[in-house]
């Protein structure tokens, strides 16, 4: 039952797929940070870069819209709130609420910036196996003292794995309670506690069974992490992104 799902790895052979995952994380962090400061020319350049990368990973436009459909509402909220709160020259007023020219411009820029950060995240997750992301985090955290990088990497993997399971459990319990007329209860806190407690109980129970299953498959926290290797192209990519962020984006 193969099906498309949001922010999910797709096999490929393009440049982005071949890049070292550590390099991708560093580049994503740099680009995301500088996007927040970029103005129109910088954002245009980033959009162009995004377009090139989309071609590289062969991601159809329809898939991008499908995967980001829920973020559209979020971007709209950001745009509208900027429009209504930014002081400046009013272009429309009604009952004391006014939309300003500066607000529209700022709103568009803010939504554009956020959209680019989300789209870059999408490209990262589409071109990187979850396991490689986990390994990269483990490698990147290794030099940091007092940080149990292996444990964090395992926890990350398990979170990615179990969020859909916990959501499905929550839906199941919620449906079962609605079938027994929980909607009739007026107190939202009572309703919430009736939902949260069984979900937590089942999650803890499931985590216990998971630990047993991992033990039965010889799990050892100190197992060697898969090797990663940065090649010349990865270093070149980092250098280009750094130059891109320092020189071009504040324009």
């Amino acid at each position: 039952m193969a099906q498309t799902i949001a922010f999910h790895f797709r096999a490929g052979t393009g440049f982005l797929h071949r890049m070292d995952p550590r390099c991708k994380i560093i580049c994503l962090a740099l680009i995301s940070l500088s996007t927040l400061k970029a103005l129109t020319p910088g954002l245009l350049l980033l959009t162009l870069l995004f377009g090139i990368l989309v071609r590289d990973v062969h991601l159809p436009g329809r898939t991008i819209f499908y995967e980001l459909r829920y973020f559209g509402l979020f971007l709209l909220v950001v745009f509208v709130s900027k429009c209504l709160t930014q002081p400046g020259t009013p272009i429309f007023s009604l009952k004391g609420i006014s939309i300003t020219h500066e607000g529209v411009v700022e709103g568009l820029l803010a939504a554009w910036r956020l959209a680019l950060v989300i789209l870059m995240g999408l490209l990262f997750s589409v071109s990187t196996r979850p396991k490689d992301i986990r390994t990269a985090v483990e490698h990147l955290l290794a030099p940091v003292p007092f940080v149990p990088e292996k444990r964090i990497a395992v926890m990350m993997g398990l979170i990615v794995r179990f969020i859909p399971v916990i959501l499905s459990t929550t839906r199941e319990i919620s449906d079962a309670q609605r079938a027994r007329a929980i909607d009739q209860r007026k107190n939202p806190i009572a309703r919430m506690s009736r939902l949260v407690l069984p979900v937590m109980r089942r999650t803890i129970d499931r985590s216990q069974r998971l630990a047993t299953a991992m033990e039965s498959r010889c799990f050892d926290e100190n197992r060697p992490s898969p090797p990663l290797s940065m090649v010349k192209a990865d270093w070149q990519a980092i250098i280009i992104v750094v130059i891109f962020c320092i020189v071009l984006l504040p324009v």
Binding site: P130, K131, R209
Partner: peptide, 9 residues
């Protein structure tokens, strides 16, 4: 089965 599957893929 759901409780013994540990991998993200």
């Amino acid at each position: 089965a759901d409780s013994q599957i540990v991998g993200e893929t």
